[in-house]
């Protein structure tokens, strides 16, 4: 058999399940692009949050503290708790998004698995740890208030604490509601599609 015949024979081979694969690839590629957009969004948010937390910490420690001249140690404890919780929250998000910075060159299957793992982690952390850190921040601010109104009468102090807690709980609830809504809109569909894709890739 000559080479031309071999060539002809070779060229009779076709891509498997051509339509499904080609269509699937479009959807998969689109999904991967969306995942990348989401990754970039998470990184941008993390960067913004890190800057805001750092500036707040600087303002609290170097500007507010000398101005307020705290009466007790509770101001510093509250400050430590608030900033510690805020930093921990920020750090948690950075750790989660860190591996995303790498360009993953694994097979599509491994890439999907890795992204799914990260998204699940982010999702669980959002749902469980954010409220916990919010409570820690609230406790810290209460301690700061406790010190700031140290010399005021008990009635005013009580009113200030009730107002602070009512405000913080409302803001917290609203922020959790919108965070969940954002999560349902941004993460859930991608997680679902990735899970479907993972299943499909396992079947191939």
């Amino acid at each position: 058999m000559n080479f031309e015949e071999i060539q002809k024979n070779w060229q009779t081979q076709q891509a498997p399940a051509a339509e499904a694969k080609a269509g699937g690839a479009t959807a998969e590629s689109d999904l991967l692009v969306r995942v990348k957009v989401l990754q970039r969004k998470v990184m941008r948010t993390n960067l913004l949050v890190a800057i805001v937390i750092s500036l707040t910490a600087v303002a609290f420690v170097f500007i507010l503290r000398p101005l307020l001249n705290p009466n007790t140690i509770w101001y510093d404890v509250g400050m430590g708790l608030t900033l510690g919780a805020a930093f921990a929250l920020g750090l948690l998000h950075w750790f989660k998004s860190m591996p995303w910075k790498k360009q993953v060159n694994l097979s599509s299957k491994a890439y999907v698995e890795q992204v799914l793992k990260k998204l699940h982690y982010l999702n669980t952390a959002n749902q469980r740890l954010t409220p916990f850190f919010m409570v820690a921040i609230l406790a810290g601010i209460n301690l700061i208030y406790f010190d700031i109104f140290w010399n005021e009468n008990i009635k005013l102090r009580l009113v200030m604490h009730i107002m602070l807690n009512a405000f913080m709980i409302s803001v917290g609830a609203i922020s959790l509601y919108y965070s969940k809504r954002h999560n349902d809109q941004s993460y859930e569909p991608i997680i679902q599609e990735l899970e479907e894709l993972q299943q499909k890739l396992e079947e191939v």
Binding site: A15, P16, K21, A22, A25, T26, E28, S29, D30, L32, V33, S107, S108, K109, L201, V204
Partner: peptide, 17 residues
């Protein structure tokens, strides 16, 4: 052949990206 199919999928994804 299975690896080739996997690779083919990856090539398509790379082309898109």
């Amino acid at each position: 052949p299975d690896d080739a199919k996997d690779l083919y999928q990856e090539v398509l994804v790379k082309v898109w990206l």
